[in-house]
Design a protein around this nucleic acid. Structure first.
Length: 454
DNA sequence: TTCTCAGGTTACCCACCAAA
DNA sequence: TTTGGTGGGTAACCTGAGAA
């Protein structure tokens, strides 16, 4: 069996501790030659530089690790923030749902204005409301009626056509229809329209009447509420006062005078109590004694009682007088308080009216501002209509004919004259108006161009 | 389940305009 | 405040897909 004479040395890592130790031993050996020493010195220098670099790199590595740690921390914080935000968002969603639920709450009140409010809310939620507020459907126009009859037919002729195409075909067909063909649909429309107008007028009247009634009801309800509130406040105060008087006895009220018997009993009591008699026994004895007393014996006690009563009545009169005076002043105070309450209520009402007025004014000014936004002196003005051209002519002559006539009556006269005007004259004014309109349109075009360029 | 939208035509309502 | 003219907006019908 072959053996290995010089077995290969065990593989050592270049940077292993043993190798480094060997290297260091070589560097530090004093037995080396001067040339070799020079080489060693440069090697030492390189090593030192390398070590310095290594240190530097170590520091940089540490710094980078620190930075990474910081970034990790920031990321972690951001994630946490996002999580909390999610939680907050969820909370907000729940709150929103709650609020939406609350919005659906409708007070169960029978007050007219509350009902009307609820109704408007329903209107908002309900189907798209017609602009004129009418409940009855408008009559279908002749074209629409014709469409109704012919939709299926056109669809049969063009089974593959889509809605848009069918609609286009119908529109084109309608234009080719003769007057006679259109006539039945126009007549049907006319009849439907008459019926519709009747219904709509009735509805309009009813709506107006209802509105008036509602306004009146609102005012009544407000007044009733105010009255009820004041009454309630008054009653509450009264009740409070009553409770107080029941509990507290008036110390200034004169005490009722004692009777002749009580004066006698008071006189006899000390003597009877000396015999160790109880309160009840003393009362029984004095009662019996009083019964057995003669009129003459009772007379001094009666006299004393009478005198006491006279004093009491005098005191009572004085007490009553002061009480009446107090009551009077209290009543005055209450009346003044009531006046104050009413004034406060009135002031509140005035404030509300003032606020409403301010809001109204603000709306008006905003509207005016909006209107004035495009007020450009160069903007061409709309030309006068044929009627207005006639107005200009007629107004002069009519004003001369009727001096001192007011403007509205004058306009009414002009309107009458316009209606009585002959066809030729009318056409003349129409022609003038048309010319002016043409010129106006050109001016508008130019104005728009310059505006766009600016 | 209910509403909206697409397109055609037409009649009507409403706001606005003009001068004095 | 009066009047007639004008223009913009809307609703009337049909169907079916798609959105809410």
């Amino acid at each position: 069996m072959a053996t290995v004479a010089n077995p290969a040395p065990a593989k050592k890592s270049r940077n292993s501790r043993k190798a480094l130790k060997q290297k260091n031993e070589i560097v530090e050996s004093p037995l080396l030659s001067p040339a070799k020493g020079k080489e060693t010195k440069s090697y030492e220098k390189d090593l030192m530089e390398m070590q310095a670099m290594l240190e530097k790199m170590k520091i940089e590595k540490e710094k980078t690790e620190d930075l990474l740690k910081e970034k990790d921390e920031i990321l972690r914080k951001k994630e946490e923030e996002l999580e909390t935000r999610d939680v907050e968002q969820e909370k907000l969603k729940v709150e929103l749902k709650k609020l939406q639920k609350m919005k659906e709450f409708k007070p169960n009140m029978t007050l007219a204005f509350c009902q009307s409010l609820a109704q408007t809310e329903d209107d908002k939620k309900g189907k798209k409301k017609k602009k004129d507020g009418a409940e009855t459907k408008r009559p279908s126009t002749p074209y629409i009626l014709w469409c109704k009859d012919n939709w299926n037919e056109v669809k049969k002729e063009n089974p593959d056509s889509y809605f848009k195409e069918t609609s286009n075909i119908l529109g084109a067909k309608w234009k080719t229809l003769s007057a006679e063909e259109k006539k039945p649909y126009e007549e049907k429309y006319k009849a439907e329209k008459e019926a519709y107008l009747q219904v709509i007028t009735k509805e309009k009247r009813e709506r107006e009447a209802m509105k008036l009634l509602e306004d009146e009801q609102k005012q009544k309800t407000a007044l009733e509420l105010l009255d009820q509130y004041l009454h309630f406040v008054q009653e509450a105060e009264q009740e409070d006062n009553n409770k107080k008087t029941k509990k507290i006895k008036d110390p200034l009220k004169p005490k009722q005078p004692i009777s002749a018997y009580l004066i006698y009993a008071n006189e006899r009591r000390p003597a009877l109590r000396e015999d160790n008699k109880s309160v009840i026994e003393v009362a029984k004895l004095t009662g019996e004694e009083w019964k057995n007393l003669s009129e003459e014996q009772k007379a001094p006690y009666d006299k004393m009682a009478k005198k006491n009563k006279e004093i009491y009545l005098e005191e009572m009169e004085g007490y009553k007088r002061t009480k009446e005076e107090e009551a009077m002043s209290q009543k005055k105070e209450e009346e003044e308080l009531m006046k104050l309450h009413k004034q406060e209520a009135l002031q509140l009402l005035k404030k509300k009216e003032k606020a409403d007025h301010i809001i109204k004014k603000k709306k008006e000014t905003t509207k005016k501002k909006k209107k004035n936004e495009d007020v450009n002196p160069n903007k061409p003005k709309k030309p006068a209509s044929s009627f207005f051209l006639f107005c200009k002519d007629a107004r002069k002559s009519l004003a001369e004919e009727h001096p001192g006539i007011n403007n509205s009556t004058l306009t009414a006269h002009i309107s009458l004259k316009w209606k009585e005007l002959g066809e030729e004259e009318r056409q003349m004014y129409n022609g003038k108006a048309a010319e002016l309109m043409e010129a106006y349109k050109k001016e508008v075009e130019e104005y728009n161009k310059t505006k766009a360029a600016a």
